[in-house]
């Protein structure tokens, strides 16, 4: 089952003020309009993607409560969704989340070796975050790109036909870009215009 444990006490509060920018709120209104009146809860999944990206990289209780208030639904309705879907993170993650595909077709094309190599290069186990906070490594199920196996996704960008040399290159590149802001064009809210 996908259910994940929420590690924070339910009332854990972060210090970060939770409020979308006016511009994002305009997007939010447009997304809600895609569903019939009174069915605004339908916007929950896209909004959680945007919230995770805009605030902390994961969904804190504050963030989930904020989304509940935006959609005029109960916080529990948000928690039960956030715990169900694997793309929502409930614990802090590194700046870059590496999701390596572990499913059959990738596995028979060398995916397991690539996963081991990532663990070795980052000096962490799958599921952990590097001490410098730059990388979290996760293993995920089939990413729908099996023809380019082995594949991984970093912050929802795809990397295909992976080899050890490619991994070296990608990690170096991500390290170099670590101080830069994420390009606007790749953000969730830019995909819903």
């Amino acid at each position: 089952m996908l259910d994940k444990k929420i590690n924070h006490p339910l009332h854990a509060k972060t210090d970060i003020p939770v409020r979308f920018s006016e511009e994002t709120l305009e997007r939010v209104r447009k997304i809600i309009e895609r569903y019939p009146a009174g069915k605004q809860k339908s916007a929950l999944l896209p909004l959680l993607h945007m919230a995770q990206e805009e605030f902390l990289g994961y969904l804190s209780v504050d963030v989930m409560d904020y989304i509940a208030s935006l959609l005029e639904i109960q916080p529990i309705e948000v928690y039960e969704v956030a715990t169900f879907y694997s793309q929502y993170y409930l614990d802090p993650v590194g700046k870059n989340v590496i999701e390596i595909c572990r499913t059959g077709p990738c596995a028979i094309c060398g995916g397991e070796a690539i996963q081991s190599y990532l663990e070795q290069k980052l000096a962490i186990k799958t599921g952990e975050t590097t001490p410098d906070g730059l990388f979290t490594l996760k293993a995920v199920e089939c990413l729908g790109a099996c023809g380019s196996a082995p594949v991984m996704q970093v912050n929802t960008e795809f990397y295909e036909f992976l080899t050890e040399e490619k991994i070296d290159h990608i990690l170096d590149d991500l390290r170099r870009k670590s101080s830069e802001e994420k390009p606007e064009a790749s953000k969730w809210k830019e995909k819903f215009f």
Binding site: L45, P46, H49, Y88, E141
Partner: peptide, 9 residues
């Protein structure tokens, strides 16, 4: 309209 899932087969 396009709707996004969030990782669940």
């Amino acid at each position: 309209h396009v709707h996004s899932g969030a990782g669940a087969y």
